[in-house]
Amino acid sequence: MDEVTFPIIIARGMLAALPRPVIGRGAAALMRSMRRHHPDLFRNLAALPPTRLQVEPTDLPHRFLLSFGEKPASLTLVRGDAPACHATLKGSVDSLLALLEGRIDSDALFFTRAITIVGDTSAVVALRNTLDREEISLLDEAMALLGPLRGIGRRSVLRWEGRAERLRDRIIAMRAPDAPEGRDLAAECGSLRAEIETLKSRLAKQEILARRKQGVAA
């Protein structure tokens, strides 16, 4: 099968624009589809301790509750206050979906702070490792919901994603005419800040070594 990039712009747009009940029903339908195509995944999730994880896409106005262990795994939209849960996983919807599909290394995302975990880390580690056993294509799962129209739906979604990507690139170029292409100044600032912290640490270490040497010499 051809390697296809997940249509993240379309997905993010739909998740941001669609009414909550539609998103809720869509999430439930997606889980049913995945259960049919990945029975081992759901068996492995059921074998884990009962767990409730809040999944918080930082670029969407929604939060989700993923429950697994004992009962069949479920994904529901959170309404109102944060529910009692074992852990919260935060990140851009792009990062979270890439994690679900195993397209990106979760530790690398964690090192760069692209995702954050609050609460019981073992619950998130167990989920990551269980997901990583499966080769999941969210696009295939979503298109399977269209039944016999999935081929047409897939082609249309990918065509619209291509157009959206071109439009996004044009808007970025117009907004930042002076910035060199591809430069993320906020990220560069963050990286420099981290470098300064590291240098401060090294300096501190050198000072300690120097003091020790002086002590020995004395």
């Binding site: 760069t112 702070r113 906020a186 963050g190 800040r193």
Partner: peptide, 9 residues
């Protein structure tokens, strides 16, 4: 203890 945007481990 990590500052914002500092790489974690």
């Amino acid at each position: 203890r990590y500052a914002r945007n500092e790489n974690a481990a």
